[in-house]
Design a protein around this nucleic acid. Structure first.
Length: 273
DNA sequence: AGTACGCCCTGGCCGC
DNA sequence: TGCGGCCAGGGCGTAC
């Protein structure tokens, strides 16, 4: 499932391929995937003939900036993919391909999403923050232990808090489990009870795990692919995620799994207190 | 207001 | 072997 490291990998791929290019056509094959007030035909019309000035990311959202007041926002949900297709390495569209952005000369970007939890929309550049309403960017240099302390101010269990995009942007179910293991913190710990050394460890773990995952080009547990249709490799580095029953890599205790707020949570009962 | 939960969707996997 | 049913979960809407 695309979380911050996966979207960042795709962003870097697209910055190399589509930045500076002109959109010749936008084909919306599945109009239901286009959300918000601007209807699919209008979106296609407003994006047509526009140059792409930048490819950015905010949390798990991918932002394609146009040389107009508009920006195209993609949210990939659980199984969304952004696939780059060129004459040298063509990608064939299938029943799960919902949008095709053509650049001419056989170059195109495909938005695919089998489970259709993703979405696409067009909005004004000035509206982005207002629409996304996301919290702090964990890899930005202004994300400090002091900032982390200020957002973990509730009694909500830390696992659920890490998943709250309004608090910290971009962390999903895989990385929240991996971060809490790295920090040695039990997922049920009340957020506001994490102070001092433990807070420092948590801050360090957030930065470390996310950077490590980006270095791996993300985590392919199921559908995620880079924009070049390649697998990530972070799944080979899981300490706890989907390792229930297997020995903890640190102490050998079997990894446990529990439901927390409707999401599965994996942890070592001995290493995480 | 802050928190909890159900819903959307479909491929893959499990068990009979 | 085949098929029915259930599970995964990001983000939002609703309920309490």
């Amino acid at each position: 499932m695309p979380e911050l490291p996966e979207v960042e990998t795709i962003r870097r791929n697209l910055a190399r391929t589509i930045k500076g290019k002109r959109i010749s056509r936008v084909s919306i094959l599945q109009p239901a995937m286009v959300k918000r007030e601007i209807a699919p035909p209008m979106l296609a019309k407003r994006a047509r003939n526009r140059f792409i000035t930048a490819v950015k990311r905010r949390g798990k959202a991918l932002l394609i900036f146009l040389d107009s007041p508009d920006v195209i926002v993609f949210r990939l949900g659980m199984t969304g993919q952004m696939l780059w297709s060129s004459p040298g390495r063509p990608v064939r569209r299938d029943m799960h391909t919902h949008v095709i952005i053509d650049f001419g000369a056989g170059e195109r970007l495909l938005f695919r999403d089998p489970r259709r939890f993703g979405e696409m929309y067009l909005t004004g550049k000035g509206n982005i923050e207002c629409i996304l309403r996301m919290g702090t960017e964990p890899l930005h240099r202004n994300f400090t232990p002091v900032v982390l302390n200020s957002v973990i101010n509730s009694r909500v269990r830390i696992k659920q808090l890490l998943l709250d995009q309004k608090k910290i942007a971009g962390i999903g179910n895989i990385y929240s489990d991996e971060i809490l293991f790295e920090a040695g913190i039990h997922p049920c710990t009340p957020s506001c009870s994490i102070k001092g050394v433990r807070l420092g460890k948590l801050h360090k773990a957030v930065c470390l795990i996310l950077r490590e995952a980006i270095a791996c080009n993300g985590d392919t547990v199921s559908d995620y692919r880079t924009a070049f249709n390649e697998n990530g490799s972070y799944q080979d580095n899981h300490r706890v995620y989907q390792r229930q029953g297997e020995p903890c890599l640190r102490c050998g205790t079997p990894i446990e799994r529990m439901q927390l707020g409707g999401r599965s949570s994996h942890y070592c009962p001995k290493c995480q207190k």
